[in-house]
Amino acid sequence: MGLVEVEGLTKRYKWRVAVEDVTFYVEEGRVTGLLGPNGAGKTTIIRCILGLARPDRGHVRVLGETVLGGLPPRVAREVGYVPETPEAPPWLTACELLEYLAVMEGMSSLDARVQARRALALLGAEDFCGRRLGGLSKGERKRVLIAQAFLQPRSVYLMDEPMAGLDAEWIAEVRRLISEATGGEGAAVLLSSHLLKEVEGLASSVVVLKKRVLYRGGVEDLLSKLTQARKVVADVDDAKRALDVLRAKGLKAQLVSAKRVEVLDADVEDVVIALKGIVRIYGVSSARLDLEEAYLALVRGEGGG
């Protein structure tokens, strides 16, 4: 069992299913990646964990307490949250926002001032202290919103695409902060991303999601599965026609260029037989998928291991 437990979670928005029957745990001292394409339900899950949205079925427990319409006060103090979109009240300065949030967490005004500045300094955002959030760029606002999650040490961090909109320097810094939180403080981190490379090297386990859980387990296992995936590359005179033919035969083909198609989960022989006599074949070869391709294939439901 983990510090965060999500069991059988289903959430619908009117008639649209956002996530269905999702189960996973986020364990102490570890980063769990929540991977999936846009619209896979990552943000919905994080909102349900925080009590910002109500699940239609299933339940969520954080630090052993069930979340019903909001985090219990004891738990709320222990949870840091980085929202996906860098929206924050534009009329507040960065320091005001962090100070008010710190006071809302129970700090004295003096402590709030100190902690707000310390948290901003973690993200190199101390210069924004007196600047209104409405006047900051998206990336700068994102750094302020990451800083508010670090106003005090937490047991659980829920980070929804924390690196989106940041430049390389601050992505590295955020990765360092996450490592420190899990390493030194033993916190549990749920890190959502639509990019495998953002999670790779940080997360020890991963949940791949596309409304339902596609994969749940160790990152190493996922990587080894993904890297076993192969593709057949066919160079032809009319790739569009070849694509139609291959798809008609039930193969997972995709267009690369006017003269090249790729086919996942197929043998060279199958591709040659399918195309022979229909298009002119210049060459057919088999290759391993790179990691990102294999991950995309997995979330597109095209196999990939």
Binding site: R47, L50, G51, L71, P73, P83, E87, P89, P90, G106
Partner: peptide, 21 residues
Amino acid sequence: ASDLREGGLRLIAIRPLGRKG
């Protein structure tokens, strides 16, 4: 409405005081 529009509610509602507070 402003806190819904500006994202203030999701930052505040997760604090110990919760929505009631």
